[in-house]
Design a protein around this nucleic acid. Structure first.
Lengths: 118, 118
DNA sequence: TCATTATATTACCACGCGGTTATTTAAAGG
DNA sequence: CCTTTAAATAACCGCGTGGTAATATAATGA
């Protein structure tokens, strides 16, 4: 799968508060569908759908234990998401440093602007 | 606004490849709607919609310069998103450490399991 | 004043998402 | 076997999203 597709799936999986709560719960250890459904005012099929979204995003994985299907967190994709964000924050910061230096220079030696700020 | 709502808006804004590309572009400096629309095979109103999503999420802000409306990156919300992810990665890592220790202990002194792995 | 440029807004459409209830599948265990 | 338990699947619904084309708004500048 393409990196961009993976980011699509990861970020849209993280965009739902129920799914974030599921991940938060799974961060403390694996859990079954019914265990995960219990704290929510929501049907079991609804939770199963959310879990499928999280699986497609590669954020969780399934084990098999009799009739149970315990889920556990798979944090690799979270890392990719953080990496994407941090990359552009860094570029921005560098740019901001330069802008800052430029502003200081302009205060020291003010000159004509290309377009007036209205 | 609630922190959870902000995360909803931030992550769903990041879930679209066009919007991520826009943010990547804005990380290198501010740009107008038409400048942003140019590299995409997409109409100007489509880009304006994407920009509105990014604004609602607080990821960008608008300046006024004559008829132009240059957008610039507002990286604070990206920080909130990273913080959320990193928090649960950390909890998971700690849990994983403990699990690791437990597994070592089990190998040293194996005992009855509660439920067979089938 | 009038044409041009930049952007926003409106109206529309197809599609996917998040939820429901009802039903089905699969394994466990008496 | 048959019942129970755990989870998945199907069918459905309302709504938001991502796109379009057409039009409106706003500021510039000749």
């Amino acid at each position: 799968m393409q990196a961009s597709e993976r980011l699509d799936l990861t970020f849209s999986a993280l965009a739902d508060p129920t799914r974030r709560a599921i991940l938060a719960r799974l961060a403390t250890g694996e859990a079954t569908v019914t265990e995960l459904a219990e704290p929510f005012e929501m049907s079991q099929p609804a939770i199963s759908k959310h879990l499928k979204v999280l699986e497609r995003a590669g954020l969780i994985s399934v084990d098999v234990d009799a009739q149970r299907r315990p889920r556990k967190l798979e944090p690799g994709r979270l890392g990719e998401a953080v990496d994407w964000i941090e990359r552009y924050r860094q570029i921005f910061e560098q740019n901001y440093q330069r802008l800052d230096a430029l502003l200081e220079e302009l205060q020291a030696r003010p000159s004509r602007r290309k377009r007036a700020k209205k």
